[in-house]
Simulated assay, not measured.
Amino acid sequence: MNLPEGLMADVAAWHPHPRAFITISGAHLYGFPSRDSDIDLRGLHVQPLREVVSLEPGRDTHSRMWFRDGLEVDVVTHDVAKYCRLLLRCSGEILEQLTSPLIVETSPLHDELLALTPSLVCTGYARHYFGFSRGQWNQFGKENRLKPLLYTFRTLLTGIHLMRAGEVETDLTVLAAEYGPAYLPELIEAKRSAEHGGTPADLLDRDRFTADFEKLTARLETERDTSPLPDVPTCRDELNELVIRTRLAAVRE
């Protein structure tokens, strides 16, 4: 996607620390952006050692929201140590941000983390996709909005694919073609016309949605239980060394 002119200059002027990478997340990453979709930028920064060892350590997360050219921009970055801890805790959201193909800024540190992705992927990530999909499904039940409905199916299918193939795939158009349900392309097309719209009346079928939600939830459980993936990430030591090297390199610079 094309970012608004000057957006990353705004980020650079605001952000207090060097950034190892920034990628695009949200609806643009998931394959169903609308004309008024937010621009969600996520990434990793390196907190100075002086802040890390201080009696009053600085913030390890920086975030900002503002409007640029009529679109809401949401930026969140975490310090390298926090980011690695979140990966080890099997945060699917963080793994998706790391592996996003929509790269705005990158660095050798980004490349190092990407190289560790096969050792990060494990069945522990299924917990994220169970929990996130259930939360989005409950949200859809309250308001009949299309966005949480698509997020429900997107998270379930991403989780299923991760357990089956050991790779991160977040684009619902790709996932729908492989796993269904068959009506997802129609829902995606409806979403592209309005970010916060309701589910069109001619597509709203709660019984069908409920049956597919339950079926895919059960399939995610089965895929997790039969997956050859390890239970937890196997690169804790490598991530620890990466954090130490990154801190020491920042001191030398």
Rank of each mutant, 00 (worst) to 15 (best):
V76I: 14
C122I: 08
H196A: 05
H196W: 05
T61G: 00
L95W: 01
T170W: 02
G26Y: 02
E241Q: 15
R89F: 00
M65H: 08
F130Y: 15
V232K: 14
L220Y: 00
L95R: 02
C84K: 08
E214A: 14
E56L: 12
L242M: 13
D202Q: 13
H78W: 15
L95T: 00
K215W: 00
Y151A: 06
E241G: 10
T170Y: 00
E93I: 07
T158D: 04
V174C: 06
P200I: 12
R59G: 03
V76E: 07
L109F: 04
G92T: 05
S34W: 03
G6N: 07
R236N: 08
G166I: 07
S193K: 07
D60W: 04
A20E: 13
G31D: 11
Y125F: 15
Y129M: 03
R35I: 10
G70Q: 12
G43Y: 07
T173F: 02
P200F: 11
Y125C: 03
E169D: 05
L113P: 02
L86D: 02
T246I: 11
D74Q: 14
G70R: 12
V53A: 04
R134N: 06
S37E: 00
E169Q: 14
S227D: 11
R42K: 14
R219E: 15
L156S: 12
W14Q: 02
L88V: 04
A250L: 13
M1W: 01
R50D: 07
A9P: 01
L120N: 04
L157W: 04
G70E: 10
D38Q: 04
R154C: 10
L55Y: 03
